[in-house]
């Protein structure tokens, strides 16, 4: 009796979830079988499954040179900066936007904030080029000249690029990622704010004591998502925006660009899969680790 009841209870729900589960299975899980390519010496005449095993040989090129250190350092540090600064900026924008009282005005502002996110990185790279070009760029020709300073050859001086890349990335993504925080703030209980006002709390006090603490779970989830991708990088940002300039590799080389540049000529399936597998596995481990930490500090903010 109870068994039958249980079945009727979950059956329709399972049925409802079926399309979603099927999608996950087909789109996300079945392709994971492709991971096998990373451990194979692919021979097209024999097919992937019958190709000889290569052990960990395909992974070697990732760690063989000092480039390994540079690209892993760059990938990690940029992503950490992007996560921290990106989150701060997004929350800042969301809090400010929430305080914009006039609806029509806030609608226009929102559209403007999201716009950079819709621009392709290739176009962004040329917007940056308009600023940074050595001969005709806005910075060299207008600002530095105006200040009476020497012009800078931006595309061959790697020391400026950590800042340029962070500025470009924040400019492009902060508006878009603030949406989720705006939604979270809009969903907060207005009674809390009324009560605070009654007690004489000012705007700043309200923001720090009500809005921000309530955003904590959202921040936790968003950061966890971001950490899962900490070993990946936006290829467009690191390849297109520096115009693939060799002199900047010290500051712009990430795992993705390295793999692209290294394998463009070889076109080796096994080695490129190995890079992908490496990124995913480390990302997966980091998500588990970060989630474990979050759960210990604040169980409500943890993802699982």
């Amino acid at each position: 009796m109870t068994l039958a009841k249980k079945r009727t209870g979950t059956g329709p729900l399972l049925l409802l979830a079926l399309p979603g589960l099927a999608y996950l299975l087909i789109n996300n899980y079945i392709p994971m079988l492709g991971m096998v390519i990373a451990f194979k010496n692919v021979d097209f005449a024999k097919g992937i499954l019958k190709s000889p095993w290569a052990g960990l040989k395909n992974f070697e090129f990732l760690f063989k040179t000092n480039d390994a250190f540079i690209m892993i350092r760059n990938t990690l540090l940029y992503n950490i900066v992007f996560i921290v600064l990106g989150t701060v900026c997004a929350i800042f924008i969301a809090v400010l936007m929430h305080e914009v009282a006039k609806r029509s005005y806030s609608k226009v502002m929102q559209a403007g904030l999201i716009l950079p996110n819709l621009i392709s990185m290739v176009v962004v790279s040329y917007i940056a080029y308009a600023f940074l070009s050595a001969d005709r760029g806005f910075l060299n020709e207008t600002i530095l000249k105006g200040l009476g300073k020497e012009s800078v050859n931006w595309y061959s001086e790697s020391k400026y690029w950590p800042f340029i890349l962070v500025i470009v990335q924040i400019w492009k993504t902060a508006g878009y990622s603030s949406i989720i925080y705006m939604a979270a703030i809009a969903g907060m209980d207005q009674a809390l704010y009324e009560a605070a006002r009654m007690d004489g709390a000012g705007k700043l006090k309200q923001i720090f004591s009500i809005t921000l603490p309530q955003l904590k779970p959202t921040v936790g989830i968003m950061v966890l998502f971001a950490i899962g991708r900490i070993f990946s990088s936006d290829f467009g940002l690191f390849y297109q925006v520096p115009m693939n300039s060799g002199a900047l590799y010290g500051a712009t080389q990430t795992i993705d660009t390295y793999v692209y540049r290294a394998l463009m000529q070889l076109g080796d399936l096994g080695m490129s899969s190995a890079a992908g597998v490496f990124q995913s596995i480390v990302g997966f481990a980091l998500v588990l680790g970060a989630n474990y930490l979050v759960r210990r500090v604040d169980p409500d903010s943890a993802l699982f």
Binding site: F61, K64, T65, S156, G246, A262, Q265, L266, D268, M271
Partner: peptide, 21 residues
């Protein structure tokens, strides 16, 4: 090139880094 894939991929990167300049 079969046994030299690691070296070739690393050298391609060095080439891209220094040669254009």
């Amino acid at each position: 090139t079969t046994d030299f894939k690691n070296e070739i991929s690393a050298i391609t990167n060095v080439y891209n880094q220094y040669l254009p300049g």
